[in-house]
């Protein structure tokens, strides 16, 4: 239990520092702004209490907001992502038990993990970029930027998962 807590805290700090110091300053062609920190929400244990999941999602979003100068937008996207994750896993875990404590590609298989990651990342990015464009005046551009960035974020998470499971 203590080990889990340490792993979660470690990931929280690493992902947020990486997001705030490196990725927030990375701009590829104006359309790709990966938000890899959302991996933290995907990675939380299966059996986490739903309320705790939502509160942690909100906290993650607020911290990123504080360092991006966009108070509320990341928090909004993260809470929606957290809730969708809760709905997804609520219907799934009843039949599939032995995937380990944390969602990972090694335990759950590529196909399941890819679907899980891609759908949640897309939800997160759509919410974020639509909250950012706010007036809905430039919706097609916001959707395009969300999808381009989501592709990059998913690719990054999958690449890291593959590297991690090789070494484990």
């Amino acid at each position: 239990m203590l080990k889990d807590l340490r792993t979660i805290l470690f990931r929280f700090i690493i992902l947020l520092v990486f997001q705030v110091v490196v990725l927030n300053h990375l701009h590829i062609g104006g359309y790709f702004n990966p938000y890899v920190y959302v991996w933290f929400i995907l990675f939380l244990p299966y059996r986490i209490h739903p309320s705790l999941l939502l509160l942690l999602s909100f906290l993650t979003g607020i911290v990123v907001d504080l360092f991006s100068g966009t108070l509320g937008m990341h928090a909004f996207a993260c809470v929606v992502t957290g809730y969708v994750r809760y709905l997804m896993l609520k219907s799934a875990t009843a039949t599939e038990h032995d995937r380990g404590r944390f969602p990972s590609m090694r335990k759950a298989g590529f196909k399941w993990f890819f679907h899980y990651t891609a759908s949640l990342v897309i939800v997160h990015h759509l919410c974020l970029f639509m909250a950012e464009s706010a007036d809905f005046g430039d919706l097609p551009s916001a959707l395009l930027r969300a999808m381009c960035s989501a592709v990059l974020t998913v690719a990054f998470i999958l690449a890291c998962e593959i590297l991690f499971s090789e070494s484990a």
Binding site: S51, D65, G72, A75, V79, Y83
Partner: peptide, 28 residues
């Protein structure tokens, strides 16, 4: 409780977005 918490947190973040924009950042 989960759904109620979800609604509360969403309301909180939307409040932050709206308030932050209208205050034009000066108050913060």
């Amino acid at each position: 409780q989960t759904f109620i918490l979800f609604i509360l947190l969403i309301a909180g973040s939307v409040f932050l977005i709206v308030k932050h924009n209208s205050f034009q950042r000066t108050h913060f």
